[in-house]
Amino acid sequence: MLEITGLRKSFGPLEILKGVDLEIGKGDVVVILGPSGSGKTTLLRCINFLERADEGNAQIGGLQVDLRSASKKEVHSVRQKTAFVFQNYNLFNNKTAIENVAEGLITGRKIPKKKARETARKALDKVGLSDKHDAFPSQLSGGQQQRVGIARAVALNPEIILFDEPTSALDPELVGEVLGVMRQIAAEGTTMLVVTHEMQFARDVANKVIFMDGGVVVESGTPDEIFGRPKEERTKQFLRRVLPEEYNYSI
């Protein structure tokens, strides 16, 4: 489904990604954990060409591309196969919820307006916003905006959805509704690559957890392996920090 090999990326003299390999199967929910600055966002952005990698290859839904030198056309096809859910939602401010969801279908994919709006309506209903179709982003709460963001991604029916900390800009009381929607679409078999600090979500929903630090994948495995029997010292340290109540005593 998605395979990344040898991904490298520097900003100026600073090497942020130092050769990242990654494999995700169809229907997998993969969670990436890691401290701030470890390159998680950069990794997702390189996959979607929001950032140009310095090196690396990707195979996405049968399409093989060079992440450094992909042509405009290849970039476009990769974006047709992927969708991105942003930390700060990035809804189109000048468009209503339903227009936000339909935009990629109508303008990007040339799907007839009527059909696109039908798809958009279904996607909004799925994320529990059947009464907010005509609201502008400025009229929605953060949680509602992010659910529109998820609907916008889901409606494209992509091979994989990339989530970059979808709940970390939200007020705590709004996190649940967004995670709920994510659980639901995961249960429907959507392939997801999720950067998050929500450990409970990682445990319950992911079938694979990747721990990144300093621009490399330090360790990966099932949630049980990573949370229950971490092998690497850096992983243990990180978990001690984010899950103090468990790790202070048990390790």
Partner: peptide, 21 residues
Amino acid sequence: RGQLEAAQSVGLTSFQAFRRI
């Protein structure tokens, strides 16, 4: 800037992103 990135991520070309968003 996020508006352009979001538009590109849903499959709009830069030209379409400028025109529509």
